[in-house]
Structures are given as structure tokens and as C-alpha cells.
Amino acid sequence: MKPKCESCNSCGMPLESKEDFALGDTSSVYCKYCVDNVGQLLPYDTILKNNAHYYKESQGLTEQAATKMAKDLLKTLPAWKNVGV
């Protein structure tokens, strides 16, 4: 069986190849989009904005629908479990 796909603890993005990981470090639990240039997790508001953008760009959701969906998604991810509710 294939190893279970890891995913970013902040945004849920699948971590499939080395380049997907924060700073290219495969021991990181975050993806490259969720950290700054020293590997520090970005603030919730930035991640929320990025995530909403992801819904908008890929499928054409409105700002409002995309933001709500991003909030609903982040709510249960390890990095944000108790934030932004």
C-alpha cells in the first residue's frame, strides 16, 4: 500500500513532493505557502486570505463564498483548531 498522503497542518494542501514542504524540509508539517522565509507559520488572516484565493481562482467562487469556505476548512486543521471561529 502507498504511504498515506501527508497534508499541510495549516491549509490542508497535500504535501506530495519535497518542493511542497516549507523551505523544502520534508520534516515540516507545513507547506511552502504557509510559512515566511525563515519557516515561521504565517498569521491566520494571511492563510485565510490565501485559502479563499485558492477557491476563487480554481472555481470562480465569490469573495464571500470563498472566505466562508476557507473559514470552514481551516476550523478543523491542527494549526487553527481554536482560532477564527
Binding site: 470552514d72 476548512l73 478543523t76
Partner: peptide
């Protein structure tokens, strides 16, 4: 939350 996963 399930809907947000589906669209993700």
C-alpha cells in the same frame, strides 16, 4: 466543513 473539503 465537509462541503469545504469537497471544494478544496
Amino acid at each position: 466543513h465537509i462541503r469545504s473539503i469537497l471544494y478544496s
